[in-house]
């Protein structure tokens, strides 16, 4: 089962390295990891998606908590968080296919950010599921390149971790 873990860490060199090496040496499988600074410049927030059973997720949390530079760890409640991922996707596009591609972009809410005689590049920020759908829909047109950021997430409501 996929779980989303939100981690507040000291914004210092080497912290990300410590966290990723922790995951590999403890054999925790992660789907994605996204990091960025918060409104407090001394803090970064890392969002980690783990695909494992409950006991593993609990171990992940505990091991993260042990790290001196980790300030808070919280597994987000599935039903009450906003999780988004950004994707940039480049697809082959000719005069013939351009209109069809546009239709799908409109349906999925993707924005065209670049166009050339042979290609179109779109950006889409949405849930991982919807990004997958968009990607599937683009596949028949021949995808040239894709990049995804990994999910970032926050709990809904006024509370904070």
């Amino acid at each position: 089962m996929k779980k989303t873990i939100s981690v507040l860490v000291e914004n210092q060199a080497g912290v990300l390295n410590r966290i990723t090496s922790l995951f590999s040496r403890r054999a925790f499988n992660i789907d994605s990891l996204a990091v960025g600074v918060t409104d407090d410049p001394t803090l970064s927030r890392i969002t980690i998606i783990v695909d494992s059973g409950n006991s593993v997720v609990e171990q992940v949390e505990k091991q993260l908590n042990k790290m001196v530079e980790v300030i808070k760890v919280r597994t987000l409640d599935e039903s009450t968080y906003i999780g988004r991922e950004l994707m940039i996707l480049k697809v082959a596009a000719t005069m013939k296919t351009r209109a069809d591609i546009m239709t799908i972009c409109n349906i999925c809410g993707a924005k065209v950010s670049d166009i050339s005689t042979t290609s179109m590049t779109m950006e889409l920020a949405d849930t991982p599921d919807r990004l997958n759908t968009f990607q599937d829909m683009m596949r028949p047109f021949h995808i040239l390149e894709v990049v995804r950021t990994g999910v970032i997430a926050l709990q809904k409501g006024g509370g904070k971790i």
Binding site: S55, E58, Q59, K62, Q63, N65
Partner: peptide
């Protein structure tokens, strides 16, 4: 004293 040891090998 280390919560991570609890449940690591035995629940």
């Amino acid at each position: 004293v280390d919560p991570a040891e609890i449940g690591k090998n035995l629940q």
